[in-house]
């Protein structure tokens, strides 16, 4: 997507709000994990709303809103419209907010049946049938990928906002980071299934560095050829059920990975 950060007022430090929807809080923790940079951050940003970090809450409107989590309940729906209306720039952070997250596995299934199995009193639970990305409901100025997001990329987005330029977040494949680190390809050299060739860079090839295949946390790269990768993974011995499970991960509800999973699923159901 095209980075689009709006100019901020120059006379006062811009205000930052951090919002949580259906999520594990891991991406917000990436912000707290910035430690050294946090001091610099509060010099340039006024943290107005960040319940995970501070009990002080200042009302909007906010110059920069970071939104974590997917839209999963009717209440979420109300809140996201309010937040958008109250935010100059809105950036979604993490796989939940940008692609629905792992909870999107429920999408397309019988939600009432799930609730009856999971909850003793499902009648107290209000939920939407699907957990979906924030951009399904409101305009999003920038989507920062990852499960969780990368701390350095978050700082880049904030620095870009503060200096009024588009964030420089590359959308090439994980392979680019893998090769840049000098890691041998786990798929070619080890036969390990890996989504790296079609997955958005940003993690620094974390899993391949430990000999594991990429799980696709950062979602689809800029030119994801999932059909071709599916064929190759099948050649490596994955059956259609395994293929489907591989795609239906943290970014499984992204349109590209969803199509790849559906494709594998559909093949399984062919006569």
């Amino acid at each position: 997507m095209r980075p689009r950060l709006l100019p901020r007022p120059t006379n006062t430090p811009p205000t930052l709000a951090v919002w949580k929807f259906a999520s594990c809080d891991g991406c917000q923790l990436s912000l707290l994990d910035c430690e050294d940079e946090l001091i610099a951050m509060v010099e340039h940003l006024s943290i107005a709303y960040f319940p995970e970090a501070s009990s002080a809450m200042i009302g909007g409107p906010y110059d920069l809103s970071l939104v974590e989590g997917s839209v999963s309940t009717p209440h979420h729906l109300e809140r996201i419209y309010q937040i958008r209306a109250n935010s100059n720039t809105l950036v979604t952070i993490g796989a939940c907010a940008t692609a629905g997250g792992i909870q999107a596995l429920r999408n397309g299934h019988d939600i009432d049946e799930f609730m009856s199995i999971v909850y003793a009193h499902p009648e107290y639970v209000e939920t939407l049938a699907a957990a979906t990305p924030v951009s399904d409901y409101v305009d999003v100025d920038f989507e920062l990928r990852g499960c969780p997001i990368d701390r350095g990329q978050l700082l880049e987005v904030i620095a870009a906002f503060l200096t009024n330029r588009p964030p420089r977040i590359s959308s090439v494949s994980v392979c680019v980071e893998c090769k840049s680190r000098g890691l041998p390809c786990v798929m070619v050299a080890g036969g390990t299934p890996c989504l790296g060739p079609v997955t958005h860079a940003g993690c620094g090839a974390l899993c391949p560095a430990y000999g594991r295949g990429c799980y696709g946390c950062f979602g689809p790269s800029e030119s994801p050829n999932t059909d071709s990768l599916n064929e190759q993974l099948a050649d490596l011995g994955l059956d259609n059920r395994q293929l489907e499970r591989l795609w239906r991960g943290f970014s499984g509800w992204s349109p590209e990975f969803r199509a790849a999973a559906d494709n594998a699923h559909g093949k399984d159901n062919e006569p």
Partner: peptide
């Protein structure tokens, strides 16, 4: 292009 992943390897 049907086969290429454009991954840059």
């Amino acid at each position: 292009a049907d086969r290429c992943l454009a991954c840059g390897n």
